[in-house]
Write a protein that binds this DNA or RNA. Structure first.
Lengths: 200, 200
DNA sequence: TAGGGATTTTCATCCATTGAAGTTTTGCAG
DNA sequence: CTGCAAAACTTCAATGGATGAAAATCCCTA
């Protein structure tokens, strides 16, 4: 199953990611060219594009696996569990994952920094965020097909993720620490669950 | 105040927008080059970039004015009005504006179609959406400075816009009409206000 | 171990975007 | 009016991301 071909592909992919992250860190995202990344990873520039669709995408190499975890968590919801409870569990779990995985942890700060400062990366990140929300909404709709229509599912996911994301970004923008950001995320999630009407 | 220079500039800007929209409509976004747009508007391609930062930006020429209306509405909130009520008014008003303005109305379907199908436009749209949410959050924070802290303001805006946007997109994705989308938007907004816990 | 599909490299090209330098147009002071 | 400075444009050149096609390699399996 795991032939040399497959192993080599993974090694190349990893080499590209490592090279890219290191160069982004040293010189900045826009300052490093694909040629440099490819050279560093010892492949041709053309090959880069058979691994990643764009320069931006290298930074989001783990998006798929994160999403897999989330949808899986939704699909295997506890019977009888309320939508809101599941969603809150999901938010907490996400915060957990973010500070788990060794490979990811190392460059989390770098990625954060880059995404916060490079416009094209912000755009890419938002796009991914949005897509995953749609996926989550569908997963939720499936898991609660008896009590949730498509619009409610979408609204629920949108409200929850929307609230947490904006709270986090706003906190970071205001110079808050990661801890404060996490705190803000949880508070925002609870606010979304309780309802905006409950403010004040 | 409105000298010849200024008038000419506006005419050029408008010419670029018109040319771009027409070409996008006829040949598609990615298929039309800046050279063609510039030629159509009778300016050099270089000049295009003194009016718009990117090819994508032409499509969002009215973003600023929309935002102005919204923040103004927030700033002039009725004294004693509850945050939630103001926000719901805001959502309804936004839906209104979208089907108002003559210039905008004409190409609304085109824009929708393009944004829904061209990845780079989706990304740009999301970026703008996000920025405006941050602006709205700040406006809200200012308007309700006595009863709302930054995190709550951000969470409120994020939840409301997040819910409505995802509900709308989800509806459209599923082949729903614009009317159904509007309906979904209002329902999502109300759900966000009432709280996700109220589902089911 | 030879053939065949998968990967990679090479080569060529397109086009968005940007900088520099020079030209035309407009607004305004004299 | 006339000349001048600023604003707006054009031309020219270059960079760099992205993609297509064909040739060269590499790995797997019969």
């Amino acid at each position: 199953m795991v032939g040399l071909r497959e192993r080599k592909k993974q090694r190349t992919r990893r080499a590209l990611i490592d090279a890219a992250l290191r160069l982004f860190d040293e010189k900045g995202f826009e300052e490093t060219t694909l040629a440099e990344i490819a050279a560093e990873a010892e492949v041709s520039t053309r090959t880069f594009f058979s691994y990643f669709a764009s320069k931006e995408d290298v930074l989001f190499f783990d998006g798929a696996s994160r999403m897999a975890l989330a949808t899986e968590m939704i699909a295997s919801r506890m019977p009888g569990e309320h939508v809101g409870d599941l969603l809150l569990r999901l938010v907490r779990a996400s915060l957990q994952w973010a500070s788990d995985d060794d490979f990811r942890l190392l460059d989390a700060p770098l990625r954060m920094r880059l995404i916060m400062t490079v416009p094209s990366l912000q755009a890419r990140a938002l796009h991914l965020l949005f897509d995953s929300q749609l996926q989550l909404a569908r997963a939720l709709e499936d898991a609660f097909s008896d009590e949730l229509d498509p619009v409610d599912a979408a609204a629920a996911v949108g409200a929850l993720i929307g609230a947490t994301k904006l709270a986090v970004i706003s906190t970071i923008n205001r110079g808050g620490s990661l801890e404060q950001a996490e705190e803000a995320a949880v508070r925002a999630a609870q606010l979304a669950l309780r309802g905006l009407s409950s403010i004040g």
